[in-house]
C-alpha cells in the first residue's frame, strides 16, 4: 500500500494529517505490517502533552513492543479508544479507523517539515532492502 496523499510521514513510521491546528496521528501500513498481529496499545490521555521526537505511546504485537513517536509538539485533545480496546484495528485500518491521537499543535510548520508521501514510500522501500 502506498502512503496516502493528504498527510506527512516520519522515519519512525508515523503519519500526521493536519486540519487547521489539529493534527491526527497514526502509524503507517508499513509499521503495522512489520509489527504483525497487534495485541496492545497504550496512549496518553486527553490533556497530556506530546513532544516532537519523544515517545507518546506503545504498540505491542505478539513478538515485540515498540514505542510510537510524536513528530510534533502539542496537547492531546482526543484519543481513539476504539483502537485501544481493539488494537487489531491498527492491522486492519492503519490510515483510517485506527487513527491514534488528535493533537492541538503548537507549530503547524513542524508538520510541513516531515516527509511527503512519495519521500516516505521511497524511504520505506529503501529500508526494506
Amino acid at each position: 500500500m502506498t502512503a496516502p496523499d493528504n498527510r506527512r510521514y516520519t522515519k519512525t513510521h508515523e503519519w500526521v494529517q493536519l486540519d487547521g491546528d489539529v493534527a491526527t496521528l497514526g502509524i503507517t501500513d508499513v509499521a503495522q505490517n512489520e509489527l504483525g498481529d497487534i495485541t496492545y496499545l497504550e496512549l496518553p490521555d486527553a490533556g497530556d502533552s506530546v513532544s516532537a521526537g519523544e515517545p507518546f505511546g506503545v504498540v505491542e504485537s505478539v513478538k515485540a513492543a515498540s514505542d510510537i513517536y510524536s513528530p510534533i509538539d502539542g496537547e492531546v485533545v482526543e484519543r481513539n479508544d476504539s483502537a485501544v480496546d481493539a488494537p487489531e484495528l491498527i492491522n486492519q485500518s492503519p490510515y483510517d479507523k485506527a487513527w491514534l491521537l488528535k493533537v492541538k499543535v503548537n507549530d503547524p510548520e513542524q508538520v510541513e517539515a516531515l516527509m511527503s508521501p512519495s519521500d516516505y514510500d521511497a524511504f520505506a522501500e529503501q529500508e526494506a532492502h
Binding site: G36, D37, T39, S61, V62
Partner: peptide, 9 residues
C-alpha cells in the same frame, strides 16, 4: 521463517 500469514492465525 518467523511467520507466514501471522502469528495469531
Amino acid at each position: 521463517p518467523v511467520q507466514y500469514e501471522g502469528i495469531l492465525a
